[in-house]
């Protein structure tokens, strides 16, 4: 059962990342910078919420306490959410949303590529399906980072500012603790070796083409993976959980 507890924790983290980021992107629906991009953002949000559903359902099974995906998504306290701080950051302007998504997509693509090789069949299947979606997201966000970075002076300054503000949250993408080492030792998750280097390569090549500058300050801001969040998560949850909290134990 030890294996299940660790895997539960691991799958929960991924599920929460998808859930919280999917929620954030869904806030754009109806407010995008142009109709075509409004639709594109919603497609990303739908992919993420689909991933969250698959991952949280699976987490519920692994936990074996009768909680399903919805119970996990809507009925936990803030300290029990294990998403990255990066994904709970507010949308800001379109450039900040794109930059946040770009950092995440680059990480997610590399992660899913590795998880396809997992000995856990279900995790491998989820990774396989999600990878296709994520590759498209990364293509889309990379193109936008370049357009905004190398567009007008205003767009360059705006997205550089977002890059500077979000950079400190990127270190947490590579968070690993004893859960990861135990799963790795048990052969359930494949080696993540080189993931960070590959991420650096993707990110620096896109940012370079976008004429953007990576901040030199490498101060890390982490905590999400152990349930210690920024102020933003509480507000997000208050909204997301409203119906389930106000009308407990009902079917919708």
């Amino acid at each position: 059962m030890e294996k299940n507890t660790d895997l539960f924790e691991y799958v929960l983290r991924m599920g929460d990342d998808s859930l919280i980021l999917g929620h954030r992107i869904s806030e754009w629906c109806g407010h995008g910078p142009i109709l075509e991009e409004d639709i594109a953002l919603t497609n990303m949000s739908l992919d993420l919420i689909g991933q969250a559903t698959n991952l949280l359902e699976y987490a519920g099974e692994l936990e074996g306490k009768g909680r399903d995906g919805d119970a996990l998504a809507f009925l936990r306290y803030d300290r029990e959410y294990k998403n990255l701080l990066l994904v709970e950051q507010t949308n800001g302007d379109f450039g900040k949303t794109i930059m946040r998504q770009f950092f995440f997509d680059a990480y997610r693509k590399l992660l899913f590529e590795r998880l396809i090789k997992s000995t856990d069949i279900q995790l491998s299947a989820i990774a396989d399906k999600s990878l296709k979606e994520t590759k498209y997201h990364l293509k889309h966000t990379s193109e936008w980072v370049i357009r905004l970075g190398d567009g007008t002076e205003e767009s360059h300054n705006r997205i550089q500012e977002s890059l500077d503000a979000l950079w400190k949250y990127t270190a947490e993408l590579f968070f690993a603790n004893e859960v990861d080492s135990k799963l790795l030792a048990a052969g359930i998750i494949p080696s993540m070796e080189g993931l960070q280097e590959d991420w650096n390569e993707i990110v620096s090549s896109v940012l370079e083409e976008a004429t953007l500058t990576i901040p030199t300050n490498n101060w890390k801001q982490e905590g999400g993976r152990i349930g210690r969040h920024t102020e933003h998560l509480g507000l997000l949850l208050a909204e997301m959980q409203y119906m389930q909290r106000a009308y407990p134990n009902m079917k919708w």
Partner: peptide, 21 residues
């Protein structure tokens, strides 16, 4: 959309509003 009561409803509502776009 941000207050949909469960994951299924959230996805359906999002897809529907997107269709309107």
């Amino acid at each position: 959309i941000t207050r949909a009561p469960n994951l299924r409803r959230k996805a359906v509502l999002l897809a529907k509003v997107q269709d309107e776009a």
